[in-house]
Design a protein around this nucleic acid. Sequence first.
DNA 1: GTGGTCTAGACCACC
DNA 2: GTGGTCTAGACCACA
Lengths: 122, 122, 122, 122
Amino acid sequence: MRCEMIVLDYQGRKPIYQQIEEQIERYIALGILKEQEALPSIRELASYLGVNPNTVKKAYDFLEEKKLIVTISTKGCFISNDVRQAKIDKISEIYENLRRNIEELEQLGETKEEIFKRISEF
Amino acid sequence: MRCEMIVLDYQGRKPIYQQIEEQIERYIALGILKEQEALPSIRELASYLGVNPNTVKKAYDFLEEKKLIVTISTKGCFISNDVRQAKIDKISEIYENLRRNIEELEQLGETKEEIFKRISEF
Amino acid sequence: MRCEMIVLDYQGRKPIYQQIEEQIERYIALGILKEQEALPSIRELASYLGVNPNTVKKAYDFLEEKKLIVTISTKGCFISNDVRQAKIDKISEIYENLRRNIEELEQLGETKEEIFKRISEF
Amino acid sequence: MRCEMIVLDYQGRKPIYQQIEEQIERYIALGILKEQEALPSIRELASYLGVNPNTVKKAYDFLEEKKLIVTISTKGCFISNDVRQAKIDKISEIYENLRRNIEELEQLGETKEEIFKRISEF
DNA sequence: GTGGTCTAGACCACC
DNA sequence: GTGGTCTAGACCACA
Protein backbone atom coordinates (compact mmCIF):
# COMPACT_ATOMS: atom_id res chain seq x y z
CA MET A 1 0.00 0.00 0.00
CA ARG A 2 1.19 3.47 -0.80
CA CYS A 3 0.91 6.15 1.89
CA GLU A 4 -0.84 8.55 -0.48
CA MET A 5 -3.86 6.26 -0.55
CA ILE A 6 -4.81 7.60 2.88
CA VAL A 7 -6.39 11.03 2.88
CA LEU A 8 -7.23 12.71 6.17
CA ASP A 9 -9.89 15.24 7.03
CA TYR A 10 -8.79 17.15 10.09
CA GLN A 11 -12.08 18.95 10.45
CA GLY A 12 -15.21 17.01 11.19
CA ARG A 13 -15.77 14.83 14.19
CA LYS A 14 -14.25 11.59 12.97
CA PRO A 15 -11.01 10.74 14.84
CA ILE A 16 -7.86 10.41 12.75
CA TYR A 17 -7.17 6.81 13.77
CA GLN A 18 -10.67 5.87 12.70
CA GLN A 19 -10.28 7.51 9.32
CA ILE A 20 -7.10 5.52 8.69
CA GLU A 21 -8.76 2.34 9.87
CA GLU A 22 -11.85 2.79 7.71
CA GLN A 23 -9.95 3.70 4.57
CA ILE A 24 -7.71 0.64 4.80
CA GLU A 25 -10.71 -1.53 5.54
CA ARG A 26 -12.43 -0.14 2.48
CA TYR A 27 -9.42 -0.74 0.22
CA ILE A 28 -9.33 -4.33 1.43
CA ALA A 29 -13.02 -4.87 0.78
CA LEU A 30 -12.69 -3.36 -2.70
CA GLY A 31 -9.78 -5.67 -3.46
CA ILE A 32 -7.44 -2.78 -4.00
CA LEU A 33 -5.28 -4.11 -1.22
CA LYS A 34 -4.52 -7.77 -1.92
CA GLU A 35 -4.09 -10.56 0.61
CA GLN A 36 -0.56 -10.79 2.04
CA GLU A 37 0.34 -7.36 0.69
CA ALA A 38 2.61 -5.25 2.90
CA LEU A 39 1.35 -2.11 4.61
CA PRO A 40 3.62 0.88 5.23
CA SER A 41 5.34 0.75 8.58
CA ILE A 42 3.72 2.66 11.42
CA ARG A 43 6.39 5.33 11.53
CA GLU A 44 6.50 5.69 7.76
CA LEU A 45 2.76 6.25 7.45
CA ALA A 46 2.72 8.47 10.53
CA SER A 47 5.52 10.58 9.18
CA TYR A 48 3.89 10.85 5.75
CA LEU A 49 0.54 11.88 7.23
CA GLY A 50 2.12 14.18 9.77
CA VAL A 51 0.41 12.49 12.68
CA ASN A 52 1.61 10.84 15.85
CA PRO A 53 2.81 7.22 15.41
CA ASN A 54 0.46 6.25 18.24
CA THR A 55 -2.44 7.30 16.06
CA VAL A 56 -1.39 4.97 13.23
CA LYS A 57 -0.67 2.24 15.74
CA LYS A 58 -4.18 2.51 17.08
CA ALA A 59 -5.64 2.15 13.58
CA TYR A 60 -3.48 -0.92 12.87
CA ASP A 61 -4.42 -2.42 16.24
CA PHE A 62 -8.11 -2.20 15.45
CA LEU A 63 -7.54 -3.72 12.02
CA GLU A 64 -5.57 -6.55 13.56
CA GLU A 65 -8.35 -7.14 16.05
CA LYS A 66 -10.74 -7.52 13.14
CA LYS A 67 -8.25 -9.99 11.60
CA LEU A 68 -7.86 -7.83 8.52
CA ILE A 69 -4.12 -7.42 8.97
CA VAL A 70 -1.39 -9.27 10.82
CA THR A 71 1.69 -7.86 12.45
CA ILE A 72 4.87 -9.84 12.12
CA SER A 73 7.50 -8.57 14.52
CA THR A 74 10.54 -7.05 12.86
CA LYS A 75 8.94 -7.65 9.47
CA GLY A 76 6.02 -5.28 9.48
CA CYS A 77 2.29 -5.37 8.87
CA PHE A 78 0.55 -7.34 6.13
CA ILE A 79 -2.95 -7.84 4.83
CA SER A 80 -4.30 -11.16 6.15
CA ASN A 81 -4.29 -14.35 4.12
CA ASP A 82 -8.03 -14.45 3.89
CA VAL A 83 -10.15 -11.35 3.70
CA ARG A 84 -13.24 -12.85 2.07
CA GLN A 85 -15.22 -12.56 5.28
CA ALA A 86 -14.35 -8.88 5.50
CA LYS A 87 -15.88 -8.32 2.10
CA ILE A 88 -19.04 -10.18 3.02
CA ASP A 89 -19.37 -8.19 6.24
CA LYS A 90 -18.93 -4.93 4.42
CA ILE A 91 -21.64 -5.81 1.91
CA SER A 92 -24.06 -6.75 4.68
CA GLU A 93 -23.33 -3.53 6.44
CA ILE A 94 -24.15 -1.47 3.36
CA TYR A 95 -27.36 -3.40 2.72
CA GLU A 96 -28.39 -2.70 6.28
CA ASN A 97 -27.76 0.98 5.64
CA LEU A 98 -29.85 0.81 2.52
CA ARG A 99 -32.71 -0.78 4.39
CA ARG A 100 -32.73 1.94 7.01
CA ASN A 101 -32.61 4.69 4.42
CA ILE A 102 -35.55 3.26 2.51
CA GLU A 103 -37.55 2.82 5.69
CA GLU A 104 -36.95 6.43 6.54
CA LEU A 105 -37.97 7.61 3.07
CA GLU A 106 -41.25 5.75 3.45
CA GLN A 107 -41.88 7.45 6.77
CA LEU A 108 -41.29 10.76 5.00
CA GLY A 109 -44.09 9.96 2.61
CA GLU A 110 -42.19 8.52 -0.35
CA THR A 111 -43.89 5.47 -1.84
CA LYS A 112 -42.00 2.30 -2.72
CA GLU A 113 -42.70 3.06 -6.39
CA GLU A 114 -41.18 6.54 -6.22
CA ILE A 115 -38.14 5.19 -4.42
CA PHE A 116 -37.58 2.42 -6.99
CA LYS A 117 -37.98 4.89 -9.80
CA ARG A 118 -35.36 7.22 -8.37
CA ILE A 119 -32.98 4.38 -7.65
CA SER A 120 -33.18 2.97 -11.16
CA GLU A 121 -32.25 6.41 -12.49
CA PHE A 122 -28.95 6.43 -10.65
CA MET B 1 -44.67 19.12 21.63
CA ARG B 2 -44.72 16.94 24.69
CA CYS B 3 -41.50 16.33 26.59
CA GLU B 4 -42.02 12.57 26.56
CA MET B 5 -41.49 12.54 22.81
CA ILE B 6 -37.77 12.89 23.44
CA VAL B 7 -35.98 9.76 24.57
CA LEU B 8 -32.31 9.88 25.48
CA ASP B 9 -29.62 7.27 25.31
CA TYR B 10 -27.05 8.17 27.92
CA GLN B 11 -24.72 5.43 26.79
CA GLY B 12 -23.20 5.59 23.36
CA ARG B 13 -21.07 8.33 21.89
CA LYS B 14 -23.76 10.57 20.49
CA PRO B 15 -23.94 13.83 22.46
CA ILE B 16 -27.19 14.49 24.26
CA TYR B 17 -27.80 17.82 22.55
CA GLN B 18 -27.48 16.06 19.21
CA GLN B 19 -29.96 13.39 20.18
CA ILE B 20 -32.48 16.06 21.10
CA GLU B 21 -31.76 17.94 17.90
CA GLU B 22 -32.15 14.89 15.66
CA GLN B 23 -35.33 13.68 17.28
CA ILE B 24 -37.03 17.03 16.93
CA GLU B 25 -35.79 17.34 13.35
CA ARG B 26 -37.23 13.94 12.65
CA TYR B 27 -40.62 14.79 14.17
CA ILE B 28 -40.74 17.90 12.03
CA ALA B 29 -39.84 16.02 8.86
CA LEU B 30 -42.47 13.41 9.65
CA GLY B 31 -45.10 16.09 10.15
CA ILE B 32 -45.69 15.08 13.75
CA LEU B 33 -44.68 18.55 14.85
CA LYS B 34 -46.72 21.12 12.94
CA GLU B 35 -45.60 24.52 11.74
CA GLN B 36 -45.90 27.26 14.38
CA GLU B 37 -46.36 24.71 17.16
CA ALA B 38 -44.74 25.57 20.47
CA LEU B 39 -41.83 23.52 21.78
CA PRO B 40 -41.41 22.93 25.51
CA SER B 41 -39.45 25.72 27.16
CA ILE B 42 -35.75 25.10 27.58
CA ARG B 43 -36.09 24.79 31.33
CA GLU B 44 -39.09 22.52 31.12
CA LEU B 45 -37.54 20.07 28.71
CA ALA B 46 -34.21 20.14 30.55
CA SER B 47 -35.90 19.45 33.82
CA TYR B 48 -38.00 16.64 32.34
CA LEU B 49 -34.99 14.98 30.73
CA GLY B 50 -32.82 15.55 33.77
CA VAL B 51 -30.20 17.42 31.79
CA ASN B 52 -28.76 20.88 32.05
CA PRO B 53 -30.69 23.73 30.43
CA ASN B 54 -27.59 24.61 28.44
CA THR B 55 -27.71 21.23 26.78
CA VAL B 56 -31.27 21.74 25.59
CA LYS B 57 -30.44 25.26 24.53
CA LYS B 58 -27.60 23.97 22.39
CA ALA B 59 -29.99 21.61 20.61
CA TYR B 60 -32.51 24.42 20.05
CA ASP B 61 -29.71 26.69 18.79
CA PHE B 62 -28.71 24.19 16.12
CA LEU B 63 -32.33 23.74 15.07
CA GLU B 64 -32.72 27.49 14.80
CA GLU B 65 -29.59 27.68 12.66
CA LYS B 66 -31.21 25.19 10.30
CA LYS B 67 -34.32 27.41 10.28
CA LEU B 68 -36.43 24.59 11.63
CA ILE B 69 -37.50 26.53 14.70
CA VAL B 70 -37.63 30.16 15.73
CA THR B 71 -37.08 31.38 19.23
CA ILE B 72 -38.86 34.44 20.48
CA SER B 73 -37.18 35.73 23.56
CA THR B 74 -39.38 35.69 26.65
CA LYS B 75 -42.08 33.87 24.67
CA GLY B 76 -40.52 30.52 23.85
CA CYS B 77 -39.50 28.41 20.88
CA PHE B 78 -41.74 27.48 17.98
CA ILE B 79 -41.61 25.33 14.86
CA SER B 80 -40.94 27.61 11.87
CA ASN B 81 -43.72 28.90 9.64
CA ASP B 82 -42.53 27.02 6.63
CA VAL B 83 -40.88 23.72 7.05
CA ARG B 84 -41.47 22.28 3.57
CA GLN B 85 -37.96 23.03 2.38
CA ALA B 86 -36.52 21.21 5.36
CA LYS B 87 -38.53 18.12 4.42
CA ILE B 88 -37.37 18.29 0.81
CA ASP B 89 -33.77 18.70 1.88
CA LYS B 90 -34.01 15.72 4.18
CA ILE B 91 -35.38 13.52 1.42
CA SER B 92 -32.65 14.63 -1.01
CA GLU B 93 -30.05 13.90 1.60
CA ILE B 94 -31.29 10.36 2.06
CA TYR B 95 -31.45 9.73 -1.67
CA GLU B 96 -27.87 10.92 -1.96
CA ASN B 97 -26.95 8.46 0.75
CA LEU B 98 -28.72 5.73 -1.12
CA ARG B 99 -26.85 6.57 -4.32
CA ARG B 100 -23.50 6.37 -2.60
CA ASN B 101 -24.36 3.08 -0.94
CA ILE B 102 -25.41 1.50 -4.21
CA GLU B 103 -22.32 2.78 -5.97
CA GLU B 104 -20.19 1.21 -3.30
CA LEU B 105 -22.01 -2.09 -3.54
CA GLU B 106 -21.28 -2.15 -7.26
CA GLN B 107 -17.63 -1.51 -6.56
CA LEU B 108 -17.75 -4.48 -4.22
CA GLY B 109 -18.91 -6.67 -7.07
CA GLU B 110 -22.66 -6.69 -6.54
CA THR B 111 -24.64 -6.36 -9.77
CA LYS B 112 -27.55 -3.96 -10.18
CA GLU B 113 -29.83 -7.00 -10.45
CA GLU B 114 -28.68 -8.47 -7.15
CA ILE B 115 -29.05 -5.11 -5.46
CA PHE B 116 -32.57 -4.58 -6.76
CA LYS B 117 -33.56 -8.05 -5.72
CA ARG B 118 -32.37 -7.49 -2.16
CA ILE B 119 -34.04 -4.12 -1.96
CA SER B 120 -37.40 -5.41 -3.10
CA GLU B 121 -37.27 -8.01 -0.34
CA PHE B 122 -37.08 -5.37 2.38
CA MET C 1 -50.50 58.19 14.62
CA ARG C 2 -52.00 54.99 13.42
CA CYS C 3 -51.10 51.77 15.17
CA GLU C 4 -50.18 50.06 11.89
CA MET C 5 -47.22 52.37 11.52
CA ILE C 6 -45.40 50.28 14.11
CA VAL C 7 -44.03 46.98 12.84
CA LEU C 8 -42.36 44.59 15.24
CA ASP C 9 -39.68 41.99 14.69
CA TYR C 10 -39.96 39.36 17.38
CA GLN C 11 -36.77 37.64 16.34
CA GLY C 12 -33.47 39.43 16.61
CA ARG C 13 -31.99 40.83 19.75
CA LYS C 14 -33.67 44.23 19.85
CA PRO C 15 -36.20 44.52 22.70
CA ILE C 16 -39.79 45.24 21.73
CA TYR C 17 -40.01 48.47 23.72
CA GLN C 18 -36.93 49.75 21.95
CA GLN C 19 -38.33 48.95 18.53
CA ILE C 20 -41.45 50.93 19.35
CA GLU C 21 -39.40 53.79 20.73
CA GLU C 22 -37.07 53.97 17.73
CA GLN C 23 -39.82 53.81 15.16
CA ILE C 24 -41.77 56.65 16.74
CA GLU C 25 -38.59 58.65 17.10
CA ARG C 26 -37.86 58.10 13.43
CA TYR C 27 -41.36 59.17 12.34
CA ILE C 28 -40.96 62.34 14.36
CA ALA C 29 -37.58 63.13 12.84
CA LEU C 30 -38.94 62.51 9.35
CA GLY C 31 -41.84 64.84 10.04
CA ILE C 32 -44.37 62.10 9.47
CA LEU C 33 -45.60 62.64 13.00
CA LYS C 34 -46.37 66.35 13.47
CA GLU C 35 -45.97 68.41 16.61
CA GLN C 36 -48.92 68.18 18.99
CA GLU C 37 -50.32 65.16 17.17
CA ALA C 38 -51.94 62.50 19.34
CA LEU C 39 -50.40 59.08 19.83
CA PRO C 40 -52.52 55.96 20.31
CA SER C 41 -53.24 55.24 23.94
CA ILE C 42 -50.96 52.75 25.64
CA ARG C 43 -53.58 50.05 25.85
CA GLU C 44 -54.77 50.62 22.31
CA LEU C 45 -51.30 50.26 20.83
CA ALA C 46 -50.48 47.35 23.13
CA SER C 47 -53.63 45.56 22.17
CA TYR C 48 -53.04 46.17 18.47
CA LEU C 49 -49.47 44.92 18.65
CA GLY C 50 -50.34 42.02 20.90
CA VAL C 51 -47.82 43.01 23.53
CA ASN C 52 -48.02 43.80 27.19
CA PRO C 53 -49.14 47.38 27.99
CA ASN C 54 -46.06 47.70 30.20
CA THR C 55 -43.93 47.31 27.09
CA VAL C 56 -45.61 50.21 25.32
CA LYS C 57 -45.51 52.24 28.53
CA LYS C 58 -41.75 51.73 28.69
CA ALA C 59 -41.32 52.98 25.13
CA TYR C 60 -43.48 56.05 25.82
CA ASP C 61 -41.56 56.74 29.03
CA PHE C 62 -38.25 56.82 27.20
CA LEU C 63 -39.70 59.11 24.54
CA GLU C 64 -41.03 61.41 27.22
CA GLU C 65 -37.63 61.46 28.89
CA LYS C 66 -36.16 62.61 25.58
CA LYS C 67 -38.88 65.30 25.48
CA LEU C 68 -40.21 63.95 22.21
CA ILE C 69 -43.67 63.33 23.58
CA VAL C 70 -45.70 64.59 26.53
CA THR C 71 -48.25 62.74 28.58
CA ILE C 72 -51.31 64.64 29.67
CA SER C 73 -53.19 62.77 32.35
CA THR C 74 -56.63 61.61 31.31
CA LYS C 75 -56.06 63.05 27.84
CA GLY C 76 -53.35 60.84 26.47
CA CYS C 77 -49.94 61.18 24.83
CA PHE C 78 -48.98 63.80 22.27
CA ILE C 79 -45.96 64.72 20.18
CA SER C 80 -44.18 67.66 21.84
CA ASN C 81 -44.64 71.26 20.74
CA ASP C 82 -41.10 71.52 19.50
CA VAL C 83 -39.23 68.62 17.98
CA ARG C 84 -36.66 70.58 15.96
CA GLN C 85 -33.88 69.56 18.34
CA ALA C 86 -34.77 65.93 17.88
CA LYS C 87 -34.32 66.28 14.17
CA ILE C 88 -30.93 67.94 14.58
CA ASP C 89 -29.79 65.24 16.97
CA LYS C 90 -30.86 62.52 14.60
CA ILE C 91 -28.93 64.08 11.75
CA SER C 92 -25.79 64.40 13.86
CA GLU C 93 -26.11 60.82 14.90
CA ILE C 94 -26.28 59.62 11.31
CA TYR C 95 -23.31 61.75 10.28
CA GLU C 96 -21.34 60.21 13.10
CA ASN C 97 -22.29 56.80 11.78
CA LEU C 98 -21.16 57.80 8.34
CA ARG C 99 -17.83 58.96 9.66
CA ARG C 100 -17.16 55.67 11.41
CA ASN C 101 -18.14 53.65 8.36
CA ILE C 102 -15.82 55.58 6.09
CA GLU C 103 -12.98 55.29 8.57
CA GLU C 104 -13.45 51.57 8.64
CA LEU C 105 -13.52 51.32 4.85
CA GLU C 106 -10.20 53.12 4.72
CA GLN C 107 -8.73 50.66 7.19
CA LEU C 108 -9.94 47.88 4.91
CA GLY C 109 -7.89 49.34 2.09
CA GLU C 110 -10.49 51.39 0.26
CA THR C 111 -9.16 54.77 -0.86
CA LYS C 112 -11.08 58.00 -0.33
CA GLU C 113 -11.47 58.20 -4.11
CA GLU C 114 -13.03 54.75 -4.40
CA ILE C 115 -15.37 55.51 -1.54
CA PHE C 116 -16.51 58.79 -3.07
CA LYS C 117 -17.04 57.13 -6.41
CA ARG C 118 -19.24 54.44 -4.90
CA ILE C 119 -21.20 56.94 -2.85
CA SER C 120 -21.94 59.19 -5.81
CA GLU C 121 -23.36 56.18 -7.65
CA PHE C 122 -26.00 55.61 -4.99
CA MET D 1 -2.38 35.90 17.37
CA ARG D 2 -1.38 37.29 20.71
CA CYS D 3 -3.92 37.35 23.53
CA GLU D 4 -3.28 41.01 24.25
CA MET D 5 -4.87 41.90 20.93
CA ILE D 6 -8.27 41.28 22.49
CA VAL D 7 -9.55 44.00 24.79
CA LEU D 8 -12.82 43.54 26.66
CA ASP D 9 -15.34 46.03 27.88
CA TYR D 10 -17.07 44.44 30.84
CA GLN D 11 -19.54 47.28 31.11
CA GLY D 12 -21.98 47.87 28.32
CA ARG D 13 -24.53 45.49 26.95
CA LYS D 14 -22.45 43.73 24.33
CA PRO D 15 -21.83 40.11 25.33
CA ILE D 16 -18.23 39.16 25.91
CA TYR D 17 -18.25 36.35 23.36
CA GLN D 18 -19.45 38.83 20.77
CA GLN D 19 -16.69 41.29 21.58
CA ILE D 20 -14.10 38.58 21.08
CA GLU D 21 -15.77 37.47 17.87
CA GLU D 22 -15.94 40.98 16.41
CA GLN D 23 -12.37 41.88 17.28
CA ILE D 24 -10.97 38.76 15.67
CA GLU D 25 -13.20 39.26 12.64
CA ARG D 26 -11.89 42.77 12.38
CA TYR D 27 -8.24 41.71 12.62
CA ILE D 28 -8.84 39.20 9.86
CA ALA D 29 -10.53 41.76 7.61
CA LEU D 30 -7.67 44.18 8.23
CA GLY D 31 -5.12 41.54 7.30
CA ILE D 32 -3.51 41.70 10.72
CA LEU D 33 -4.30 38.03 11.20
CA LYS D 34 -2.96 36.05 8.25
CA GLU D 35 -4.50 32.99 6.65
CA GLN D 36 -3.55 29.72 8.37
CA GLU D 37 -2.24 31.55 11.42
CA ALA D 38 -2.87 29.89 14.76
CA LEU D 39 -5.22 31.46 17.29
CA PRO D 40 -4.54 31.15 21.01
CA SER D 41 -6.02 28.00 22.46
CA ILE D 42 -9.44 28.37 24.05
CA ARG D 43 -8.02 27.82 27.52
CA GLU D 44 -5.13 30.19 27.00
CA LEU D 45 -7.24 33.08 25.77
CA ALA D 46 -9.88 32.45 28.42
CA SER D 47 -7.32 32.43 31.14
CA TYR D 48 -5.62 35.57 29.84
CA LEU D 49 -8.92 37.44 29.57
CA GLY D 50 -10.15 36.13 32.88
CA VAL D 51 -13.29 34.68 31.36
CA ASN D 52 -14.70 31.22 31.21
CA PRO D 53 -13.41 28.88 28.49
CA ASN D 54 -16.99 28.37 27.32
CA THR D 55 -17.23 32.05 26.53
CA VAL D 56 -14.18 31.95 24.27
CA LYS D 57 -15.41 28.74 22.70
CA LYS D 58 -18.69 30.42 21.83
CA ALA D 59 -16.82 33.20 20.04
CA TYR D 60 -14.68 30.69 18.15
CA ASP D 61 -17.78 28.68 17.24
CA PHE D 62 -19.41 31.70 15.64
CA LEU D 63 -16.24 32.51 13.73
CA GLU D 64 -16.08 28.95 12.48
CA GLU D 65 -19.69 29.16 11.37
CA LYS D 66 -18.75 32.18 9.28
CA LYS D 67 -15.85 30.15 7.85
CA LEU D 68 -13.32 32.64 9.15
CA ILE D 69 -11.49 30.07 11.24
CA VAL D 70 -11.19 26.31 11.31
CA THR D 71 -10.77 24.27 14.43
CA ILE D 72 -8.80 21.07 14.37
CA SER D 73 -9.59 19.03 17.42
CA THR D 74 -6.59 18.42 19.64
CA LYS D 75 -4.50 20.76 17.48
CA GLY D 76 -6.09 24.14 17.97
CA CYS D 77 -7.86 26.85 16.01
CA PHE D 78 -6.53 28.51 12.86
CA ILE D 79 -7.46 31.31 10.50
CA SER D 80 -9.04 29.81 7.36
CA ASN D 81 -7.06 29.19 4.20
CA ASP D 82 -8.99 31.69 2.20
CA VAL D 83 -10.33 34.74 3.83
CA ARG D 84 -10.66 37.01 0.78
CA GLN D 85 -14.41 36.48 0.48
CA ALA D 86 -14.86 37.50 4.10
CA LYS D 87 -13.08 40.78 3.40
CA ILE D 88 -15.18 41.47 0.31
CA ASP D 89 -18.36 40.72 2.24
CA LYS D 90 -17.34 43.04 5.03
CA ILE D 91 -16.72 45.91 2.60
CA SER D 92 -20.06 45.35 0.87
CA GLU D 93 -21.79 45.33 4.21
CA ILE D 94 -20.32 48.69 5.15
CA TYR D 95 -21.20 50.23 1.80
CA GLU D 96 -24.76 49.03 2.25
CA ASN D 97 -24.77 50.72 5.64
CA LEU D 98 -23.48 53.88 4.07
CA ARG D 99 -26.20 53.81 1.43
CA ARG D 100 -28.94 53.49 4.02
CA ASN D 101 -27.50 56.28 6.13
CA ILE D 102 -27.34 58.65 3.19
CA GLU D 103 -30.85 57.74 2.13
CA GLU D 104 -32.08 58.54 5.59
CA LEU D 105 -30.25 61.86 5.66
CA GLU D 106 -32.00 62.81 2.43
CA GLN D 107 -35.35 61.93 3.96
CA LEU D 108 -34.44 64.21 6.83
CA GLY D 109 -34.03 67.07 4.40
CA GLU D 110 -30.30 67.06 3.81
CA THR D 111 -29.33 67.61 0.18
CA LYS D 112 -26.76 65.45 -1.61
CA GLU D 113 -24.51 68.55 -1.78
CA GLU D 114 -24.62 69.13 1.98
CA ILE D 115 -23.93 65.48 2.63
CA PHE D 116 -20.94 65.37 0.28
CA LYS D 117 -19.56 68.53 1.81
CA ARG D 118 -19.72 67.08 5.31
CA ILE D 119 -18.18 63.80 4.21
CA SER D 120 -15.23 65.44 2.51
CA GLU D 121 -14.48 67.27 5.75
CA PHE D 122 -14.00 64.01 7.67
C1' DG E 1 -42.62 33.15 33.34
C1' DT E 2 -39.06 33.24 29.10
C1' DG E 3 -34.57 33.06 26.77
C1' DG E 4 -29.46 35.00 26.91
C1' DT E 5 -25.19 35.06 29.07
C1' DC E 6 -21.75 33.51 32.05
C1' DT E 7 -19.09 31.08 35.78
C1' DA E 8 -16.21 27.53 37.69
C1' DG E 9 -15.52 23.52 37.13
C1' DA E 10 -15.76 18.50 35.57
C1' DC E 11 -14.73 14.42 32.46
C1' DC E 12 -13.83 12.65 27.92
C1' DA E 13 -11.36 11.26 23.60
C1' DC E 14 -7.69 12.34 20.95
C1' DC E 15 -2.84 13.28 19.87
C1' DG F 1 -1.44 19.51 25.65
C1' DT F 2 -6.09 20.25 22.66
C1' DG F 3 -11.05 20.78 21.78
C1' DG F 4 -15.99 18.70 22.93
C1' DT F 5 -19.46 17.97 26.13
C1' DC F 6 -21.86 18.65 30.24
C1' DT F 7 -23.21 20.05 35.05
C1' DA F 8 -25.35 22.94 38.44
C1' DG F 9 -25.98 26.80 39.12
C1' DA F 10 -26.08 32.16 38.76
C1' DC F 11 -27.82 36.82 37.16
C1' DC F 12 -29.87 39.61 33.62
C1' DA F 13 -33.39 41.95 30.63
C1' DC F 14 -37.69 41.34 28.90
C1' DA F 15 -42.80 40.63 28.91
